[in-house]
């Protein structure tokens, strides 16, 4: 991360289509970056290459800058980012390591935005409806119920400390 508190992430046509404007779904790039990173992590591998500054790829990929504090000061998004980083590194120290967290956001974010471009934007039909379908495919009500129970118990055990 730079001294000015920013880091570069890979933007592509999915950002153009889904962030801002009259037809966008997300109002800001940082919201969409965390969404992409969550998708990238859920689907598997991070992208190998970090974006190169000032290097516009032919498929619309480009490097853009974002302020870390947009994410770190958001209580939900900071928890998600820290969790993704811990799950990726396996090191509890990474929960406090800003560089590790931005690195995870950048790599899984790039992987996720490419998946979203392929499966949402580059499909026939309306982006919003495609995105709804994409999210619905992830749905597993039994798993959600089970997850709720597990998480509730962990929270309760921690609260007794």
């Amino acid at each position: 991360m730079s001294a000015s508190g920013t880091f570069n992430y890979e933007s592509n046509k999915a950002y153009e289509e889904l962030v801002g404007g009259d037809n966008g779904v997300f109002s800001s790039n940082y919201q969409f970056l965390v969404f992409c990173a969550s998708v990238g992590h859920a689907r598997g591998e991070p992208a190998d290459e970090a974006p190169q500054e000032d290097d516009m790829a032919a498929d619309g990929r480009e490097s853009k800058e974002i302020r870390w504090e947009f994410i770190s000061q958001n209580s939900e998004l900071s928890v998600v980012t820290a969790s993704l980083t811990y799950a990726h590194t396996g090191r509890p120290e990474s929960l406090l390591d800003i560089d590790a967290q931005t690195d995870v956001l950048v790599k899984y974010g790039a992987a996720g935005s490419r998946i979203i471009y392929d499966e949402v934007v580059d499909q026939s039909g309306d982006n919003l409806n495609n995105l709804i379908d994409f999210i619905e495919e992830q749905r597993n009500d039994d798993r959600i119920a089970q997850q709720s129970g597990v998480l509730e118990q962990i929270q309760s055990e921690f609260s007794s400390i």
Partner: peptide, 17 residues
Amino acid sequence: GYLPFAMPTIEATAEML
């Protein structure tokens, strides 16, 4: 919208902690 994708990871992190 990130929750359905992030929750398994959050769960894994919670279990590790």
